[in-house]
Simulated assay, not measured.
Amino acid sequence: MRFVVPPTKIPLEDGTAGSLPVLVLTAAHSRFMLARMLPTRTTEDPLLGSWELIRRLGRVPRRLIWDNEKTGIRRGRRHAEGVDAFMGTLATRLVLLPPNDPESKGVVERRNGWFETSFMPAHSFASPADFDAQPAVLCTKS
């Protein structure tokens, strides 16, 4: 799982426009991809976003591989509060990749690159809900 940021601002419910983080789940072998726009990167939002993506996937992966970035999943050398309980509830394992190690996730990185440079710039989004609806259909076709 990884965060990406849309290249353009999206209209928000309060009448402003912003670039909210997008949580991306990519299955490494099939390259099946799901994405969900989140309000923040604080711990609660990535966990709720992960749950929604896993629910849409229809299965819990044996392990969730996360980029080792500032996601709200890690606090220093430990997992953020609630992360271990979330993983235990799902009976899955959290794997945090080493920083700056693209070789450990090459297929996923290429897929994320397509999402950031081809999918998002080619589409317009009326709201975060509109963004969430479009990748669910389109990201599985390329």
Rank of each mutant, 00 (worst) to 15 (best):
G113P: 05
P21S: 08
P102V: 11
K70M: 09
D101M: 05
A80Q: 07
A27F: 06
T43N: 01
T40Y: 10
R59Y: 14
T43F: 02
L90T: 06
G106W: 10
P46Y: 13
R74T: 12
L64K: 00
L94Q: 03
G58N: 09
S19G: 10
T40K: 14
V24C: 06
L23R: 00
V108N: 05
T40P: 12
R63I: 03
T92C: 08
M33A: 15
T43C: 06
P99I: 02
V108T: 09
W114H: 11
P98S: 08
A35I: 01
R77Y: 02
P46M: 13
T89L: 10
K70W: 04
L53Y: 11
L34R: 15
G76D: 05
R56L: 14
G113C: 08
P99T: 04
V107H: 05
L34V: 15
L47K: 14
V107I: 05
E44C: 14
T92F: 03
N112K: 02
D84F: 03
R111P: 01
E52W: 09
P99Q: 10
R55Y: 15
L38V: 14
V107Q: 09
L94H: 01
L96W: 00
H79R: 12
S104A: 14
P98Q: 08
P21A: 07
D45G: 11
S50H: 06
V60C: 15
L97C: 12
G82P: 07
N112E: 06
E109M: 02
L34T: 03
